[in-house]
Simulated scan of single mutants.
Amino acid sequence: MKYNQAYDRAQQLKKFYKNLLWFGIVAVIITIRNFYRTGDFERSVFSGSIILTIWGIILAVKAVKLFVLNDEWENKILEDELKKTKKPINF
């Protein structure tokens, strides 16, 4: 992996973890707020929030992009496709 690619990946990971931390903080604040409103902990945790649901989906997509569909995966698929289309040379 080249330096620029490694630097870009480190920056993406930094942004992802920062976003994940903020998600956790906001989720705790919303859960505590709902607990004080309802007085029931189970109801306050599982009542759901549109904001947290959408944010969670976005974080899940980013996590898949960062950890599953990374550069190594892309290079492997590219090499496999090139091997399929490569025709043998007959002399």
Rank of each mutant, 00 (worst) to 15 (best):
residue 1 M to T: 09
residue 2 K to Y: 08
residue 3 Y to A: 03
residue 3 Y to H: 07
residue 4 N to I: 11
residue 4 N to S: 11
residue 4 N to C: 03
residue 5 Q to V: 02
residue 5 Q to S: 01
residue 5 Q to C: 00
residue 5 Q to M: 00
residue 5 Q to F: 00
residue 5 Q to I: 02
residue 6 A to V: 11
residue 6 A to Q: 14
residue 7 Y to V: 13
residue 7 Y to C: 07
residue 8 D to C: 02
residue 8 D to P: 03
residue 8 D to N: 10
residue 9 R to G: 01
residue 9 R to H: 07
residue 9 R to A: 02
residue 10 A to T: 11
residue 10 A to K: 12
residue 11 Q to D: 15
residue 11 Q to F: 15
residue 11 Q to I: 15
residue 11 Q to E: 15
residue 12 Q to K: 13
residue 12 Q to W: 07
residue 13 L to G: 15
residue 14 K to H: 15
residue 14 K to I: 06
residue 15 K to R: 09
residue 16 F to V: 00
residue 16 F to H: 02
residue 18 K to A: 00
residue 19 N to S: 09
residue 19 N to E: 08
residue 20 L to N: 01
residue 20 L to F: 03
residue 20 L to T: 02
residue 21 L to Y: 13
residue 21 L to V: 10
residue 23 F to K: 00
residue 24 G to T: 03
residue 26 V to R: 01
residue 27 A to Y: 10
residue 27 A to G: 07
residue 27 A to I: 07
residue 29 I to K: 08
residue 30 I to W: 12
residue 31 T to F: 02
residue 32 I to M: 03
residue 33 R to C: 05
residue 33 R to H: 09
residue 34 N to E: 08
residue 36 Y to K: 05
residue 37 R to I: 02
residue 37 R to L: 01
residue 37 R to K: 01
residue 38 T to F: 10
residue 39 G to F: 02
residue 39 G to I: 00
residue 40 D to R: 06
residue 42 E to K: 13
residue 42 E to R: 13
residue 43 R to C: 00
residue 43 R to N: 05
residue 44 S to C: 04
residue 45 V to F: 14
residue 45 V to D: 06
residue 45 V to A: 07
residue 45 V to R: 14
residue 46 F to M: 04
residue 46 F to T: 06
residue 47 S to P: 08
residue 49 S to E: 06
residue 49 S to K: 06
residue 50 I to V: 08
residue 50 I to K: 15
residue 51 I to P: 07
residue 52 L to K: 04
residue 53 T to E: 06
residue 53 T to V: 01
residue 55 W to V: 01
residue 55 W to I: 00
residue 56 G to R: 00
residue 56 G to P: 05
residue 57 I to S: 13
residue 58 I to W: 14
residue 58 I to E: 13
residue 59 L to A: 03
residue 60 A to L: 10
residue 61 V to F: 09
residue 61 V to C: 05
residue 62 K to Q: 14
residue 64 V to M: 12
residue 64 V to L: 12
residue 65 K to F: 06
residue 66 L to F: 05
residue 66 L to I: 10
residue 67 F to I: 04
residue 67 F to Q: 06
residue 67 F to M: 03
residue 67 F to V: 04
residue 68 V to G: 06
residue 68 V to S: 08
residue 70 N to H: 12
residue 70 N to R: 10
residue 70 N to Y: 08
residue 71 D to N: 13
residue 71 D to H: 12
residue 73 W to Y: 11
residue 74 E to Q: 09
residue 74 E to C: 02
residue 74 E to H: 10
residue 75 N to T: 08
residue 75 N to C: 00
residue 75 N to G: 01
residue 76 K to A: 08
residue 76 K to E: 05
residue 76 K to G: 03
residue 76 K to H: 10
residue 77 I to S: 06
residue 77 I to H: 10
residue 79 E to N: 09
residue 80 D to N: 12
residue 81 E to S: 09
residue 81 E to T: 11
residue 81 E to Q: 13
residue 82 L to T: 09
residue 83 K to S: 09
residue 83 K to M: 09
residue 84 K to Y: 11
residue 85 T to Q: 11
residue 85 T to I: 15
residue 85 T to P: 04
residue 86 K to A: 12
residue 87 K to H: 10
residue 88 P to F: 14
residue 88 P to T: 15
residue 88 P to V: 14
residue 89 I to Q: 14
residue 89 I to S: 13
residue 89 I to F: 15
residue 89 I to V: 14
residue 89 I to D: 14
residue 90 N to Q: 10
residue 90 N to C: 07
residue 90 N to R: 08
residue 90 N to G: 06
residue 91 F to M: 11
residue 91 F to R: 14
